[in-house]
Structures are given as C-alpha cells and as structure tokens.
Design a protein around this nucleic acid. Structure first.
Lengths: 206, 206
DNA sequence: TAGATTGTTAATCGATTAACAATC
DNA sequence: TAGATTGTTAATCGATTAACAATC
C-alpha cells in the first residue's frame, strides 16, 4: 500500500505532533502552521512539513493545517483510530500505577488485564482489575487477541516472560524492566527505564 | 576538556552498553568483544567500537574489553561514578511507584524527596519518605543542591512546575507528564509517556 | 606463531535544512 | 491583490557500515 518505506524516526515524531495538536484543540484553536507546531514541540518547521507530507497533502498554502483534520489523519496513520486492548504483566508498584493510569483514554489504548505469578497477589483487585495468574497468560492473550503488553516484571524474569508473550502473539511490548530484550523481527519494543533515561543526561552535567 | 563534541546519539547508547556489561559481570564473565556486546543489545559491532573509541582506547586487539574496566570508564564518562540526589515531584500513583522503585541502586541515583501540593497528601509516608509541601520545593532543592527531578504531576500542571524546577536550578528532568516541555538550553529532559511510546509502535501493526 | 579483535579510515547511507515555486 | 505558508527539491550535514592495518 505505502509505495515508499517511511523511516522509523519520522513515525516516532508523529505521536508528539499529535499530542501537541490535541492540546491545541482543547484550547479551541482551529488551525496551526508548521512554524507554530514546531515552536510547541521543539522541532523545525521544515522538518514538520517534510514529515507530514510523507503521508499526503494535509495542509493549505497560506493558511496551514486544520487541526482536527490533521489529528484524524495522524490517528489513522498511527492506527490509533481504534482502541487496542493492552495487558499488564507484573503487578508490582509500576504495574499497579499503570493499571490505574488515566492517560490512555482517547489515545488508542485500554488496559484489560493484569497478570502476576505471585500466588498471594492473584485474585487481588487493582483499580477495576483482578490480578490473574500468569499461568493463564498465554491462553488469555490468544483468546482475547491481545497484541500489546506492558512488561513490569523484575529484570531477571523479563526475557522469559517476553518469550511467552511472543508465543502468545504479542507484537508490541512496552518494557519497564531494565534489560535489553531479544525479539523476533516482527515484534517491536520500547524501553522505559528511569535509570537509563537519567544516565543519558548526567553526561551533560557541569 | 573533550576536544571534540560527542554526538548525543552516542551518549544515549552508553547507558545501554553499561546495563548489558553489568549483567555480564553478574554472570561472572570477565571479558567481552564488540561482537558479543552487540549481540546482547542489538547494535552492530562496528558501531560499538566506534562509540567506545570516542572516549579512549579501552580495548585490546585480539582479546576485546575487560568488562569491569569498561564499566568504570563508562560510569566515569556518564558522570555516574557518584550518586545523584533526585526529587520526585507529584505523589500520585506514578510518583509513589518511583519512590519505592529499587532499580536506582548502583546506577547513580537515589531519591531523597517527594513533593505534592495536595494538602491531604502532605505529611503522609511513601516508603521511606514523607510527602513534602510543594510550596517549599524551590527552597529545598536549592538548599540540598538537587539538580535532578522526576516529574509526575498531572499534564496541565507540568509546565508551571517545570518553570519552578528551572528556577530552583534543576538541570535534568525526567518527565512522566504527557506534554512537551519548554526549557532553557542548559536543562535536559527525557520523556516517559506510555501512550506516546505505544503510539509509535502501532503504526507497524498489520 | 596464528587467530582474534581492536581502533580508525573511507565509503555509503540517511536525515535535516535551506530555499523557493506554487497557491491559498 | 498581497501576505502567508505549504510541499518539494537540492544542498548540507551527520551517522552507520565496511574494510583493514595494527597488534594483542
């Protein structure tokens, strides 16, 4: 369908544009320009125009972009013009925080299950969920056709659990464990590890 | 001191190398090669050698890198051969999870304070901390010379709180709020927003 | 010594920026 | 119409990879 392959670095900027545009809508702004959007997200106007134009001609010379229209297009491109079911694996502090996180609303995701292997946790409630036995994870994910997982298990367990997730058909993993994961080519991962993120900034400290 | 400027993209990979090397140490491995390390983190051997060689000649032809030595060097380069005090701003679910997170040990950071502006939370305990009044934040950060903050306040408050942090002398911010922050040039930020991270992966879903 | 692996150079590949015709 | 701003091309800039002499 897409004639040319879009670089991943461009895909990575689209959610940032989207977030800024949605903020503008909340402020009742109707229209914006690459210049203005760039100022909001700290990216050059030229780059924003180039990025967006990969997918079509969504703007108008002289007037810029109609925000609601651009939002719809970006959502469609990113395939978040729908709601994806997400499973949380690991009901520690981080898993619990994510289970109760309100920030997925209107952004394309909804948590539907929380798993843990700790017998003393299984059956407990977190927010609106009941912690389920990890023994049943593979089966449950398959049955409910869940493709997205947030991984909040301890680091030593992360690779093993990941292998199970892959077997269960997961294609997208948000990994909170501080380890690099080994994955087949068709499974994507993003790493969220506070220490690693901090470590890449301290270099610049005077 | 550094004659040439090192690209940020290289700095960003060093913590990943470091994490993998520390894992190797735990497995009692003494020595590694760019090839082997690359296999662990999913980066080409050539790139790893190039990255590391920006900072000195840390390897030996024929035998590779002595892991403990390389770890020490990387820590020194990243300025995490010390312990940085970190403040958590916002005692919601995410702030609480971070306050109790055990993953900072041995990685260069230690949480020392948690702030919130909710009167009903102030004075409460989270793990080993007592939630402090955000009114006192600027003063406390200055007094204790804290340069690093993890921002876990609601999105609408993030920019305002950030401005306060900057005034208080913060140079590094880990932002969990789903908004782009406006910052002076000498203050660094990394964004940790689960929805944004997921959104950049759904594009590849079939 | 022979094999392995670094550090580095040159070649390639990819991303960003500047500039401007087109046009709203 | 005049001013503004897009989409796109060409130029620049930067990052990655391939290859290999040096050497442990």
């Amino acid at each position: 369908m897409n004639a040319i392959k879009i670089p991943d670095i461009i895909i990575g900027r689209l959610p940032i544009y989207l977030r800024a545009l949605q903020l503008m809508v909340e402020e009742n702004i109707q229209t914006t320009s690459s210049q203005e959007l760039g100022a909001h997200v700290g990216i050059s106007a030229a780059q924003i125009r180039k990025d967006i134009s990969q997918f079509g001609e969504f703007g108008k010379q002289g007037t810029g972009y109609k925000i609601t229209f651009l939002i719809d297009k970006l959502k469609e491109i990113l395939k978040i013009d729908r709601i994806w079911d997400v499973a949380i694996i690991g009901a520690g502090d981080m898993g619990r925080a994510l289970a109760r996180y309100q920030g997925f609303v209107n952004r394309g995701f909804r948590v539907v299950m929380v798993f843990d292997n700790d017998k003393s946790k299984i059956g407990q409630a977190i927010g609106e969920f009941v912690i389920q036995d990890m023994e049943n994870m593979t089966e449950e994910l398959k049955t409910r056709n869940i493709k997205i997982a947030m991984l909040t298990v301890p680091a030593p367990a992360a690779q093993k659990v990941t292998d199970l997730l892959v077997k269960a058909g997961a294609k997208v993993i948000l990994n909170y464990a501080p380890v690099s994961l080994n994955l087949p080519e068709d499974v994507r991962v993003q790493y969220i590890d506070p220490a690693t993120h901090l470590q890449r900034m301290t270099y610049y400290m005077v």
